[in-house]
Design a protein around this nucleic acid. Sequence first.
RNA 1: CGGGACGUGGCGCAGCCAGGUAGCGCACCUGCUUUGGGAGCAGGGGGUCGCCGGUUCAAAUCCGGCCGUCCCGACCA
Length: 569
Amino acid sequence: MRWSKLFIPTLRDAPADAEAASHKLLVRGGFIRQLHAGHYSLLPLGLRVHDKVENIVRRGMEQIGAQEFLLPAMHPASIWQRSGRWESVGPEMFRLHDRKEADLALGMTHEEVFSHIATEITSYRSLPQIWYQIQWKFRDEPRPKSGLLRVREFAMKDSYSFDLDDAGLDHAFEVHREAYTRIFERLSLDAIAVQASSGMMGGTGSVEFMVPSPAGEDDIARCNNCGYAANVERATSTLAPVDDGDGSSELTRFPTPGVRTIAALETVEGGAPAHRQIKTMVMVLDGAITLALVRGDHQLNLQKLADGTGAADIRAAEPSETVEHLGAHPGSLGAVGVTDLPIVADHALRGRRNLATGANTDDWHYSGVDIDRDIAVGEWLDLREVSAGEPCVNCGQPLEVVRCIETGHIFKLGRRYAEAMGATVLDADGVARTITMGSYGIGIGRAMAAVAEVHHDDRGLIWPAAVAPYAAVITVASMRDDAAVTAAERIYGELRGLGVEVLLDDRDARAGVKFADSELIGVPWRITAGRAVADGEVELTTRSTGDTERVAIDDAAAAVAALADAARS
RNA sequence: CGGGACGUGGCGCAGCCAGGUAGCGCACCUGCUUUGGGAGCAGGGGGUCGCCGGUUCAAAUCCGGCCGUCCCGACCA
């Protein structure tokens, strides 16, 4: 393709509201443009990259014998009502009416539709199956952000496995885990497979594929020694034992004027160090006030609270609500003597004695609290978020906490959807059995943005050859240099003959502009036809290293084709 | 949804406080010069100042309402 004919609107300045590197560079490089919040147009360059990512994912699926479908993006309400999610998913689903006033939804995922089709699997002999599609998903995200990283409509590869029994599901899940590992390698993404919470999908297990990046929105805990890795929504760690002193002590109520924080309670007379305090978080779980207790120096993880209690809607109570239900403002709250509200507590508080906590009267606290004696804990749960440096549960080495982009997520769904849709088969004994399912997603645009996030420098993008919009660009330093133009045209023709995707920068612009643009759009190899042409040579520059070597005009096309081939295998 | 910021040619911004009929850089068009790291000179085109209403002789500017976008928190590929 000739650059002079292509629509590549590069920008010297990034839009003021772009924050993430991928966002800035994809806009500056002329890959994407925003239509409105969370909705982006893919320009010709952007679509080329998107297509390449898509095809890498597609090949990964074909490798495990998955069959490609294409399902409707718009669904009747009825299938979502059947699975119960019409009610349970809430405002994240785009809903609309047709002219007959029938309820419709834009698909945010396709468990319902696929399991509906799966009702036509009638014999165990047809199992297992793996079905997939690459289809647009619509999600009314509360907060779209960071360019392609978090949007409201996006292409997702979603696959679904159908098996007779748990062993089959385990196998399909494992096969996907391996396929995902290969796909992300192919994309040059160092994705870490971590244990994850299953969230709204439900099911018995899930693994997320996380790419370390400051632009991400999730934290994972990982151990560099033994390989343990989990989303902080799931991660645990070993804790050093705490010495609560000898014997039991008396519950004592004492005045603490102005003390509102854990830190303040550490230093007052009668107080205690943070790890010997109880932090009382007053939460509203599906509308019901609940006390969630963690150690004073620990952080409550909301997803763990949701997973542990089964609550769908969680928020912190307003100060007015804490006054109404407990009689005090945040800063003086506690669970001692509370019997009319549910209380859940983190394992780290089990059996603990001699603790300090709020007394449910402003400016008063308790000391000498014995959890078992003084607090009516209804349920012990894992509620605390791990912190960097805490010992790994497996090997004891310190954990690190890393910010990541979630590029893939695989779930063991079990029989929930198949049961709702009535997807059963007859087994060898002629008994009807409900199919068990897994579901497996990769966000195409998000993966593309993640690659951009990881592979760039201060000059622009550095696409890995596997996803680059073009493998090479031939830069003609000056269009008035007839010899250079001739050499460039010749190499251009040869490369196209060799099947290499190549751009010919034939714009009547200054060399500096062309160099800068080629680096901004991140094409892996550049051939410069300029002053070296007088010696029968051109320059070959590798984008990732900046290294330049001279190559004979005669050999240039073959040299680039060899590099592109090497990168392909 | 809670908190914060912003909305002025395609992009980046000034003008607003102290109302007087819109400006700068980049980009774009024409000409001349220049030609290996985002050229120079000269000329030129392009803006309902987010929208609606109000105050005023006069509103980008003051007041009210609405909409939109971005950032920080609760959700997901």
